[in-house]
């Protein structure tokens, strides 16, 4: 319960961020969706020991966060909340993979620790990328972009409506839950019968609401097709940005920039 409640606070905070205005916000949502997809594919396709090679991707995100005004504190908080799961899964690696792969002075590093770090890094990169996309675009615009990118319209509309009514229904559910809790006198947990009653009641209200919404739609000429004003217009600047970021991402994936930098530095030293 607490988890979902806090998640909803984040949900509306993300909405607030998305309502901002910046270079990143002004980009066409499709450009951002495609760039995010490329980003995720690149990160996910690294081999399991990759660490340094992934770091430039973090840099990429940080630049975008800076341009888009996404507060690092929010992202870090979100990462901190969700990271225990990553740690929990990753921690198996050092246990199972004790193969020593390198020595840092007296310290012998096993493959397991490397892949563990790699997992944490990937986790941070993919979660942050998703957050940055939503925080600079907004869920609604992401859905519209997906629709334009070929996702069936009815599915895009479905996600839009779901998102619209999450707020209404969660509040309704909370009210009912609270009303019950007030009379439960500290007894925690619901037995099945009470649960069914509560959820069933919520379900009936939801179905009624669905009917009323349908009526409201009919009143305004709904004929089975949802028409959404399409205001997305791709500009040369958008295409340029997409190409540029795609090139940068693929270059970062292909070339180990961190390594090259390292070599450059070590070579230049006497």
């Amino acid at each position: 319960m607490a988890k979902i409640e806090s998640a909803f606070v984040d949900l509306s905070y993300l909405d607030t961020l998305a309502a901002g205005d910046s270079v990143v916000h002004r980009l066409d949502p499709r450009v951002k969706v495609v760039t995010t997809a490329i980003f995720l594919l690149c990160v996910v396709s690294f081999d399991k020991y990759a660490i340094a090679a992934m770091l430039p991707f973090a840099l990429f995100l940080i630049v975008i966060m800076g341009l888009g005004g996404v507060p690092a504190s929010f992202v870090l908080k979100k990462l901190a909340i969700t990271s225990p799961f990553a740690v929990m899964i990753g921690i198996f690696n050092p246990i199972f993979d004790q193969h020593i792969v390198l020595h840092l002075g007296p310290l012998a590093v096993t493959g397991g620790w490397l892949s563990f770090l790699s997992i944490i890094l990937r986790f941070c990169l993919t979660v942050t990328a998703m957050l940055v996309l939503i925080a600079t675009t907004g869920f609604n615009a992401v859905c519209m972009a997906l629709e334009r990118l070929g996702v069936p319209k009815i599915f895009a509309v479905q996600m839009l409506m779901l998102y619209r009514y999450i707020f209404v229904l969660v509040e309704e559910g909370q009210r009912m839950h609270r009303a019950r809790a007030l009379r439960a006198f500290g007894r925690r947990g619901l037995d099945m019968k009470t649960f069914a009653h509560l959820v069933g009641q919520l379900l009936l209200r939801t179905i009624d609401r669905g009917q009323r919404i349908h009526l409201a739609m009919l009143c305004r000429g709904f004929d089975g097709t949802i028409r959404i004003r399409q205001q997305l217009r791709i500009t040369g600047r958008d295409i340029g940005t997409l190409l540029l970021s795609a090139i940068v991402l693929i270059a970062m994936r292909q070339l180990n920039l961190a390594l090259l930098l390292g070599q450059l530095l070590t070579d230049s030293l006497p």
């Binding site: 998102y163 009514y165 028409r227």
Partner: peptide, 17 residues
């Protein structure tokens, strides 16, 4: 029940569209 679209504009435009 009446405002089912993602934004106010979208909602007002729903009928005319």
């Amino acid at each position: 029940d009446q405002l089912f679209m993602p934004t106010v504009y979208e909602d007002v435009a729903f009928g005319p569209l």
